[in-house]
Design a protein around this nucleic acid. Structure first.
Lengths: 164, 164
DNA sequence: GTAGAGAATGAGACTCGTTCTCAAGGGTGT
DNA sequence: ACACCCTTGAGAACGAGTCTCATTCTCTAC
């Protein structure tokens, strides 16, 4: 999947194409000739859950929280919305490497994560990443066109540490 | 899962506890009072597939290759063996962050990976990792006990690049 | 040699996360 | 008004991985 979508905001009806013509904005990338992606109420709800979550919810957690706002929403819609938001650059998908469900992050600026091996919580790392410096060298030596990277540090969080 | 096992080598019978008493060695960690883990023929076959693979096979690929040597082996045994070998430090489990199956690596020395977004191939990175330098600082600022890290760079391999 | 304990196996059912399919609903442009 | 197309929700389907269980085998003690 390499397609990106534009996002256009809409209202809050029930089933079907959930647009009502009230307000409209693009939050995805623009002017690339690609099909616009509507920010339907369902998608907006998913996006708001992501942006207000201070942890990194799984799709199932997003689904639960979205249902508080939109009880009738289906799981497929949540998964679809998450995928579209990630494509639109409005969310990040994290695979925290512990074999569990993917987690999502409303903080789309480049940052790394520190994951607790025991409880699974993930915290953002605010330090500047040291990886940048090796990208050019690596691109040259491997022939890869490097588009990004994921750095996850693992360990035990303060409350899971033996002495804490 | 934090248990580690010792591994003791065995022979190559059929079903059941596949030991025959011919030869025996430990390749896991030792002298820790934990239960020894036998290197049964099935487990040895899994280990050999990992060590001879130049790519990073998925569990399903390992299963396929092991069946060439041991046609009767079951999927559960392969999954169990992979998990045990990872615990014993004889293999690494990679989650390459593309939502696909876990991959395994017989090269157990610490190294990073460069993953092609299109074809999924992963190559080892031989450069010294720049992440070490931030570990201490991060442990101090977050309170985590940092035990390791995973760095995966993403991009397009030479044959998947637009111009190649 | 024999019995008992314990470990490992293979088959298949099962769980879980995710994607796919499809009919229905609703907005949009003409 | 109408046709077209997008989006939705429900549920089936899928794939990866785990669990259960009867069976088979080794090891140890007697």
């Amino acid at each position: 999947m390499t397609k990106r979508h534009k996002i256009i905001a809409d209202g809050w009806p029930g089933r079907g194409a959930s647009t009502n013509g009230i307000g409209r904005d693009n939050i995805g990338c623009d002017m690339d000739g690609q099909q616009a992606l509507r920010l339907t109420p369902q998608r907006r709800a998913v996006l708001e859950v992501l942006q207000t979550a201070h942890n990194h919810p799984t799709a199932a957690e997003v689904y639960d929280r979205v249902r508080e706002v939109a009880p009738g929403i289906g799981a497929a819609t949540v998964y679809r919305s998450l995928g579209l938001l990630v494509q639109a650059g409005q969310a990040l998908e994290l695979s925290l490497g512990n074999g569990t469900a993917a987690r999502y992050d409303g903080n789309t600026s480049r940052h790394d994560h520190l994951v607790c091996d025991r409880c699974g919580q993930a915290v953002d790392i605010d330090l500047p990443s040291p990886v940048e410096m090796m990208v050019d060298e690596l691109a040259h030596s491997t022939g890869f066109a490097i588009t990004g990277y994921d750095l996850q540090l693992r360990g035990l969080c303060p409350s899971c540490r033996p002495g804490g």
